[in-house]
Simulated assay, not measured.
Amino acid sequence: MSCLDIISDYGLRSIGLGERMLPRGDFTLCHQFTLIGSGLIWNIYFGVFALLFGFFLANALALAKASQNAWLRKPAEWFVFVFRGSPLFIQFFLIYEILVLLPRAGFNIPLGITTLTIATSWLTSAWAGALIVLFLNTAAYSAEIFYGALLSIPKGDIEAADAYGLTGWNKFRKVLWPTMMRLAWPSYTNEAIFLFHATTLVFFSGFPAIRQNGDALYYAKFFADKTFNPFIPYPITAFYFILLTLTLIALFGKINRRLNRHLPGAQIGRFRFRPQIIR
Rank of each mutant, 00 (worst) to 15 (best):
E19P: 04
T189E: 03
A140P: 04
G18S: 04
H31T: 00
A250R: 13
G214W: 00
T167N: 00
K174Q: 14
G47R: 04
A224G: 04
D5P: 00
P186I: 04
S67C: 10
F222R: 04
I113T: 12
R270S: 12
F89C: 02
N190G: 11
F273Y: 15
P230A: 10
L12N: 03
R104C: 00
P233I: 01
E77Q: 13
L4F: 14
L134W: 04
W177R: 11
F172L: 11
Y219T: 01
V48I: 15
A50C: 07
R258W: 15
R274P: 01
L12G: 02
A140N: 05
I158H: 11
V100M: 12
G168S: 09
I255Y: 13
A266K: 11
Y218H: 14
L12W: 13
M181D: 01
I193K: 02
F55I: 07
Q276S: 09
T34G: 07
L35R: 03
L63Q: 12
T120F: 03
I236D: 08
H197T: 10
L51N: 05
G11W: 08
L101D: 11
A143C: 08
I278C: 06
Y45T: 02
P178K: 04
S86F: 12
I236T: 05
A238Q: 07
S205R: 05
N190D: 02
G54L: 06
R173C: 08
P208D: 08
I118S: 11
